[in-house]
Design a binder for these strands. Sequence first.
DNA 1: TCAATGTCTACTAGACTGGTAGAGAATAGG
DNA 2: CCTATTCTCTACCAGTCTAGTAGACATTGA
Lengths: 136, 136
Amino acid sequence: MKMRLSKKSEYACLALIDLSESYEKGAAKIEAISKRKRIPKKFLEQILIALKRAGYLHSKRGNDGGYWLAKDPGEIKVAEVLRLMDGPLAPVDSVSQYFYRPTPIERHPRLHCLFKDVRQQMIEKIEKTSFADLIR
Amino acid sequence: MKMRLSKKSEYACLALIDLSESYEKGAAKIEAISKRKRIPKKFLEQILIALKRAGYLHSKRGNDGGYWLAKDPGEIKVAEVLRLMDGPLAPVDSVSQYFYRPTPIERHPRLHCLFKDVRQQMIEKIEKTSFADLIR
DNA sequence: TCAATGTCTACTAGACTGGTAGAGAATAGG
DNA sequence: CCTATTCTCTACCAGTCTAGTAGACATTGA
């Protein structure tokens, strides 16, 4: 089994932390976030657009443009962001909550059950943790 | 974050389950395991060799050859097998127990801590579960 | 010697990751 | 209306990983 936090997820979290830290202090430019959190700018662009499309951010173009949070940091859970960036959190599709699909492992109930537990254990914490929790 | 059980790990577990089921009943042929558990034969070969090299199996060639467990099923933990097949279990190297390496996430202690917890929660169950537990 | 089986090395198609490049569209100030 | 600044969109790419396949070789027992 491989559990990996992709750079995309990692950068998305760092960007949201940055925006949470300056919540209600106006728009932040890509350039600024990129420098503060050391994220490649063009890569960050794509990530912010994805977050915007998913409804987590607002933006404005032009001289005093930038991004800002569309929700309270307390309402954005880490798990949502990881799912948005990398897809299902489950180790196999047959134990996935939102992306269920049958797999060979289902034929072996105990093994299936084990990975269901693993998923549950893992997910518990990140479904509770919000970005407000991360900046406190 | 992506948590994925690779086919390699999945097949390795199924093969070890098969061999656990016939523990002390003599050698099992690749062909037979392959058919019973529906694993591509040539792929299974490689997996069994890896398991043998790691000390989990013995083998014999020739007409009445095959593989059998080198240890009691109760002494083989699922976590060991997943590590052998796919490498570290940790989501980022900076929270890995056996493969530590620094990552950007370390600069943000709360995030770092979160993923340390995630790893711990996830690993707990598979470090306790043995193949004897899976066939009971 | 031969047939059956495990062992070893090499190869590969396709997907994914972590980016980069460059043109286009909105916005505000002058 | 012009321009600078910023976000937006599409395309591309090199390297790595996954899930295998192919084929020759080594060992064993009858």
